[in-house]
């Protein structure tokens, strides 16, 4: 899929000229990106390049300093007459976007089932019985049907992260954000989490994934964005960007992963 100026109804997320600075340090320096409905966009780049900050700007965990952001039918302008939502409005905006974090951040005082039910029950005020049905289905889907009564501390990192994905999915989000979700996992647990993400991608979930898993980017991404020093240095179809990068900075970054990218698709 191309990303350049494809207007129309199927653009799920449109980011234009997004900037985020902390004091004098500018972490995101004018990023523009379109994400179409059902598309999987993978954002790669060296650590500290601003990709996580960029992702956190999309559900407004960070307040951008400038630019515009559209998610679904909601456009937010961070310029002079900014329209940053607040309070309940902000909460509603975030409720439509699921996010999974590097450190899982499950609620330790709730079971796996309780974690997955938390969004529907607390935010959507859904009846507990109804939420429980949804939560059980989702936990079964991520392969944890037998772990519903476990507390996070009783689960492995990979299991916790799958619960976290189910928790985000329980809100039936229009868009899912994944922020280096396998970086904190032991290598042997990475696969089970990526498998769940692949399944979501195949089902047509709109996803923006920040990751260092190049094989995942190659196999699953519709569109790859390379960031460096707070800017997009290259973007395009996964095969083009990963295998024939045009930008020297992309090439140098990717050279570290060649063994991974070169592997045959399974």
């Amino acid at each position: 899929m191309t990303n350049n100026g494809t207007p129309g109804g199927d653009v799920m997320v449109r980011v234009e000229g997004l900037r985020k600075s902390y004091g004098t340090v500018e972490a995101v320096r004018g990023v523009s990106l379109d994400v179409h409905r059902g598309q999987v966009v993978v954002v790669i780049g060296p650590s500290g390049c601003g990709k996580s900050t960029f992702l956190r700007c999309i559900n407004l965990l960070e307040t951008p300093s400038a630019g515009t952001l559209r998610v679904g039918d909601r456009t937010i302008d961070f310029g002079a007459g900014h329209t940053m939502p607040r309070g309940r409005d902000l909460a509603r905006f975030r409720a439509r976007i699921g996010m999974v974090f590097q450190q899982f951040d499950l609620f330790p005082h709730m079971t796996a089932l309780g974690n997955v039910m938390s969004g529907p029950v607390i935010v959507k005020k859904m009846r507990e019985s109804e939420a429980e049905t949804i939560a059980r289905d989702l936990l079964a889907k991520v392969g944890l049907a037998n772990f519903t009564a476990r507390f996070p501390r009783e689960l492995s990192g990979g299991q916790q992260q799958r619960v976290a994905i189910a928790r985000a999915m329980a809100m039936e989000p229009e868009l899912m954000l994944f922020d280096e979700v396998t970086s904190a996992l032991d290598p042997e647990l990475v696969g089970e989490v990526l498998d769940v993400m692949k399944e979501l991608a195949l089902e047509g979930t709109t996803m923006i994934v920040v990751t260092h898993e190049m094989a995942f980017a190659r196999d699953v991404a519709d569109h790859v964005v390379v960031m460096d020093a707070g800017q997009v240095v290259e973007q395009g179809a996964a095969a083009d960007v990963l295998l024939q990068p045009k930008n020297p900075r992309t090439a140098s970054f990717l050279s570290r992963f060649h063994s991974t990218i070169g592997e045959r698709k399974a």
């Binding site: 309070g87 905006f93 975030r94 409720a95 699921g98 974090f101 951040d105 609620f107 938390s118 935010v123």
Partner: peptide, 14 residues
């Protein structure tokens, strides 16, 4: 932990 706050906010809690 600040992860608890961000997870709750990301789910859309007020």
């Amino acid at each position: 932990d600040k992860g608890q706050w961000q997870a709750a906010r990301a789910l859309g809690m007020t």
